[in-house]
Amino acid sequence: MTHATSFPAKTIAITGGARGIGYQTAKELTERGHRVAIGDIDEARIKKAADELGISVVGHLDVTHPDSFRAFLDMVEEQLGPLDVLVNNAGIMPTGHAHEEDDAVTRRQVEINLLGVIFGTKLALQRMLPRRAGHIINTASLAGELPVPGLATYCATKFAVIGFTEAARQEYRKSGIQLSTVRPTFTNTELVAGTAGAKGLRNAEPEEIARATAELIEHPRPFVRVTRLAGGMVAAMKFVPGRVASALGSVLGTDSVFLDDVDMVARQTYLDRIRNN
C-alpha cells in the first residue's frame, strides 16, 4: 500500500475512472493524499468505484462530447478547487483484421481515444492558462510508437495522441503548463481479455501504470514508458531494419496475438460493453 507523500496535494480529475488503469490511478493518487475526482460513461460502475475508493467527487462523463466534459470539469472545480491535473485516461481497444472492423467501431475508437483526449486537453488548458500552472497527462500506449497487427485503428489513435501531446507541449512550453504522455505496454485489464500477450514479455499490471502516472505528476517529464523492459525494446526497435522488426514480431507472436490467437468468447463481455456505452 502506498502512503501520502511530501508533495503538496493537488486537485486531479481522471477520465475512464470506473475500472482498470483509471481506477487504480485514482486509488494510487488518493492514497498519496491528492484530491481526486473520477468520471466515466458507465454511471453505475463509476458510483460503485467511488464508494470503493472513498471518493466523493464523481460524475457521468462522455469524453466524446465537449459539453459533457465541460460540465464534469466545472463540477470538479466547484467541489475541489482549481484543476491542477487532468488525466485523460478513457480509451477502448477492439481487436481484429482492419478490413473486417465495423465502421461504427472504428469511429468509436477515434472519438474516445483521440477526440476525447483533444477535447479534454483544450478544456483543461482554458482553465490552467490564466493561472500559468497545471499538468495534462494523456494516456497513450507503446502501440502508439510501434505498430501492432490486429490493432490498426487503436495504434492510429495512440500514435495521434502522442503526436498531439508533443505538439501541444512545444506550443505551451513557456506557459507554465506541463503536458505528458504515459505509454503502457499491454496491461492486464479488460482491454486485453482473451489475448495471451507477447511471448517472453509480461503484461503490465494497472497498479504499475498508476504508480508511473503518480510519479509523473510529482516529477513532471514529457513521457514515461511502462514497463521498463517493454519500453526499452520499443525504443530500440526504432533503430532496427523493418525486416528484422517483422521477424522479431513473429518470434514474439505479436503478429498474431490480436488476430488469430484471440479467444473471442473470453473477450465478448468487454466487446459488448464498449459497443453499448
Results as ranks from 00 to 15, higher is better:
Thr2Met: 15
Ala9Asn: 08
Ile12Val: 12
Ile14Trp: 00
Thr15Gln: 11
Gly16Glu: 12
Gly17Arg: 05
Ala18Asp: 04
Ile21Glu: 15
Ile21Tyr: 10
Ile21Cys: 05
Gly22Phe: 10
Tyr23Pro: 00
Leu29Gln: 04
Arg32Pro: 03
Ala37Met: 03
Ala37Lys: 00
Ala37Thr: 00
Gly39Asn: 13
Gly39Arg: 03
Ile41Ser: 13
Asp42Cys: 08
Ala50Gly: 12
Glu52Gln: 13
Glu52Thr: 12
Leu53Ala: 08
Ile55Ser: 10
Ile55Asp: 10
Ser56Ile: 08
Val58Ser: 07
Gly59His: 10
His60Val: 09
His60Trp: 10
Leu61Phe: 02
Leu61Ile: 02
Asp62Ile: 07
Val63Asn: 01
His65Met: 15
Pro66Ile: 08
Arg70Lys: 14
Pro82Asp: 14
Leu83Trp: 00
Asp84Arg: 06
Asp84Ala: 06
Asp84Ile: 11
Val85Ile: 05
Asn88Phe: 01
Pro94Gln: 01
Pro94Arg: 02
Pro94Ile: 13
Glu101Trp: 08
Asp102Cys: 09
Asp102Ser: 14
Val105Ala: 11
Arg108Cys: 13
Arg108Pro: 09
Gln109Ala: 07
Leu115Ile: 15
Phe119Gly: 00
Gly120Ala: 07
Thr121Trp: 10
Ala124Val: 10
Leu125Thr: 03
Gln126Tyr: 06
Arg131Lys: 08
Arg132Lys: 14
His135Lys: 04
Ile137Val: 07
Thr139Ser: 11
Leu142Arg: 05
Glu145Ile: 06
Glu145Ala: 02
Leu151Lys: 08
Leu151Trp: 04
Ala152His: 09
Ala156Asp: 10
Phe159Tyr: 15
Gln170Leu: 12
Gly176Phe: 03
Leu179Trp: 00
Pro184Glu: 00
Pro184Lys: 04
Pro184Tyr: 00
Glu190Cys: 04
Leu191Ser: 13
Leu191Tyr: 04
Val192Met: 11
Gly194Val: 05
Ala204Ser: 13
Ala204Gly: 07
Ala204Cys: 09
Glu205Ala: 12
Pro206Ser: 11
Ala212Phe: 03
Ala212Ser: 03
Thr213Met: 11
Leu216Glu: 01
Arg221Tyr: 11
Pro222Glu: 11
Phe223Thr: 02
Phe223Ser: 15
Val224Asp: 03
Val224Met: 02
Leu229Ser: 08
Ala230Cys: 05
Ala230Met: 13
Gly231Pro: 09
Gly231Glu: 05
Ala236Lys: 08
Arg243Glu: 09
Ala245Val: 14
Ser246Gly: 12
Ala247Asp: 03
Leu248Cys: 02
Ser250Met: 14
Val257Arg: 09
Val257Ile: 14
Phe258Ile: 04
Met264Ile: 11
Val265Asn: 13
Val265Ala: 13
Tyr270Ala: 11
Arg273Val: 13
Ile274Asn: 05
Ile274Glu: 03
Ile274Cys: 01
Ile274Pro: 06
Asn276Asp: 15
